[in-house]
Design a protein around this nucleic acid. Structure first.
Length: 600
RNA sequence: GGACCCGUGGUGUAGCGGCCUAACAUGCGGCCCUGUCAAGGCCGAGAUCGCCGGUUCGAAUCCGGUCGGGUCCGCCA
């Protein structure tokens, strides 16, 4: 399995190898020099094994070991033996054995690394970026990258077994101005013209359905020139997937099967909600204040408007009078929150867009949970109203009720924020639970108040529900789409939809979006024409590989699961990209750099 | 475009107006040491506290700016 330099991985040696002559090669992880005897922990990507250099067994090997330092690349020949009784190391997978060196050579020395390879302690991220090749040697990154490989490999095998065909689509394609900002590539051959890097292979995979491949997938790189976040990089990887002759349920079932099998393979100790909950968008917003709810804990939001409609409390009256709602949820065991803690929560509610927060601490010792309530609103509410609120929120003595009054969807959004905060503070999320769920029935369109026009909430190729088609002309905002997200633990992992596959409906949607006829022809003419040559009904979904692996690795940013990520300012600190190019390169591309007007 | 956090020997931290001639751990170099595995013991080198300017008798410490990294809002069909 190896070449001439190496017979085994370091991490692979076990008691069964005792007695074998082996050739080992790797990096010096640690060196322990006892003057006479020297121990080396020799590391490679599969793990570590101890090498013992005894001057009596090999004076040459021992002499070389004296020169060895951290991260030297070395090669050792010797015999595997069981460690002397009492010196086994149970912390090491290879801890029952060691290699007794009979010969050794230094293949390449190393400078002392700028940070520890053998510890997973925090190192400033800019330094990790600059020396990414060293960072990737550390156990945390190595494990993440190896996990990523296993995830992608599993997906490929899973889909192959189900008749999916992996097809590559071009990276140099045509710019589509709507959506995210494109990365552009200037054309040398056509002055003034540009290719764009794909934001996703959306149209191409639909054309593959028209071509009749029926089941396509690709591990596809996608590019977006937008500002970065912990879960957003200029380029990311999607499992792009499309199927013909399917309805929404087929795709969700396939995804559920894929994720379930994947979890069993790479996270066998984890638990899931089975079957995956399928929540309509409306319900997710109403109960969790989010279209990517964290279902690891409850604390659902409830509408209390009807219960407090007659109250004298001006905060509630004003909100309800303006067509708003009063909603809230119960934070168990938080009645003892201090004034300071409550003010923190109020600040959070304000920064999320609420005008305030009403808290009700059920501190009472009385006959019912609501008999002693600490709240600014208490004196305006009758015992009946308090009873109704506590019952609907399933609140009891010792609990804290959080209420927000105002307009939808701000009320829900604010409570959604607070719910996540309380879930975090109370440690309600089971660390072994991966609460996958599908969010369905997204609205087809969203009103853009800046541009005074309708925008697709997913993309313009998404099919509306047939039963909502009549609303397209009368009340477009209420049209639901055959569009779905896969979410997990508050993270959006995938988006997909059933696509439009007939020209008239696709044209109708484009017009509703306010595209001009000539733009439709210029940008989408090829797709519309394709729909006239026997386009099958089709749909798909595209999980983000980076986010999925991040979730499985327990990391907080996708940078930790990408080999060579960029900084938040979109730079590659290792290679130094982006960089200037020569005047000659610019001339070939017919480009001139426009001088930036400097501020001040 | 905006808000906030961080920047002190190689690394990670402490110090937050004078006691700093900057502390601790680890790493690095030397010497000793034959069963360690975060090896141990002794000795040593290593920092003008990101950069520029200001306040002050005095600045790592306070203020302003700037650069770099990060988190979030906007943005991300």
């Amino acid at each position: 399995m190896f070449g001439l330099l190496k017979s085994h991985y370091c991490g692979e040696l076990r008691a069964e190898h005792v007695g074998q002559r082996v050739a080992m090669a790797g990096w010096v992880h640690r060196r322990r020099d006892h003057g006479g005897l020297i121990f080396i922990d020799l590391r490679d990507r599969e793990g570590m094994v101890q090498v013992a250099f005894d001057p009596k067994a090999s004076p040459q090997g021992h002499a070389v070991a004296e020169e060895m330092r951290s991260e030297y690349v070395v090669r050792v020949e010797g015999q595997v033996r069981r460690r002397p009784p009492g010196t086994e190391n149970p912390k090491l997978a290879t801890g029952d054995v060691e290699v007794v060196a009979e010969a050794a050579e230094i293949l390449n020395p190393s400078q002392p690394p700028p940070f520890y390879i053998y510890e997973d302690g925090e190192v400033e991220e800019s330094l990790r970026f600059k020396y990414r090749y060293l960072d990737l040697r550390r156990a945390r990154m190595r494990d993440n990258i190896l996990l990523r490989h296993r995830v992608v490999k599993f997906i490929r095998d899973f889909l192959d077994a189900r008749g999916f065909v992996e097809i590559e689509t071009p990276v140099l394609i045509k710019s589509t101005p709507e959506g995210a900002r494109d990365y552009l590539v200037p054309s040398r051959v056509y002055p003034g013209k540009f290719y764009a890097l794909p934001q996703s292979p959306q149209q191409l995979k639909q054309l593959l359905m028209v071509a009749g491949f029926e089941r396509y997938f690709q591990i596809a790189r996608c590019f977006r020139d937008e500002d970065l976040r912990a879960d957003r990089q200029p380029e990311h990887t999607q499992l792009d997937l499309e199927m013909s002759f399917v309805e929404e349920k087929d795709i969700l079932d396939l995804m559920e099967e894929l994720i379930t099998a994947l979890m069993a393979e790479v996270k066998p100790s984890s638990r899931m909600l089975k079957p995956f909950p399928r929540l309509p968008y409306k319900e997710a917003m109403a109960c969790y204040g989010s279209d990517k709810p964290d279902l690891r804990f409850g604390m659902e939001i409830n509408d209390l408007s009807d219960l407090v409609a007659d109250s004298e409390f001006t905060v509630f009256r004003a909100a309800l009078g303006e067509g708003g709602r009063v909603k809230g949820f119960c934070a168990p065991g938080c009645a003892g929150y201090s004034r300071h803690q409550l003010e923190e929560l109020t600040g959070l509610a304000r920064s999320a867009g609420a005008s305030g927060l009403v808290t009700m601490a059920l501190v009472g010792e009385g006959s019912s949970p609501w008999s002693t309530v600490r709240s600014a609103a208490a004196k305006f509410l009758t015992q009946d109203q308090m009873a109704g609120i506590t019952q609907r929120l399933e609140a009891g003595t010792g609990d804290l009720i959080l209420l927000v009054a105002g307009q939808s969807p701000t009320v829900e959004k604010v409570l959604g924020h607070l719910r996540l905060e309380m879930g975090h503070r109370l440690g309600l999320a089971d660390p072994d639970l991966f609460a996958f769920a599908f969010i369905t029935e997204f609205p087809l369109l969203e009103w853009n108040s800046d541009g005074e026009r309708w925008e697709p909430s997913h993309h313009p190729f998404t099919a509306p529900y047939e039963k909502d088609l009549a609303l397209l002309d009368t009340d477009p905002g209420r049209v639901r789409a055959k569009c779905y997200d896969l979410v997990c633990n508050g993270l959006e992992l995938a988006s997909g939809s059933i696509r439009i596959h007939k020209r008239p409906l696709q044209e109708r949607i484009f017009r509703l979006l306010g595209y001009r006829e000539e733009d439709i022809q210029e940008r989408f003419g090829h797709l519309l024409e394709a729909f006239e040559y026997g386009a099958p009904p089709h749909g798909g979904i595209a999980p983000g590989i980076d986010r999925l692996v991040m979730l499985l690795a327990g990391e907080d940013t996708i940078r930790e699961v990408m080999a060579f990520p960029k900084t938040q300012s979109a730079q590659d600190l290792l290679m130094g990209a982006p960089s200037s190019v020569t005047e000659e390169q610019l001339r070939e591309l017919h480009l001139a750099i426009r001088p930036e007007r400097r501020q001040r």
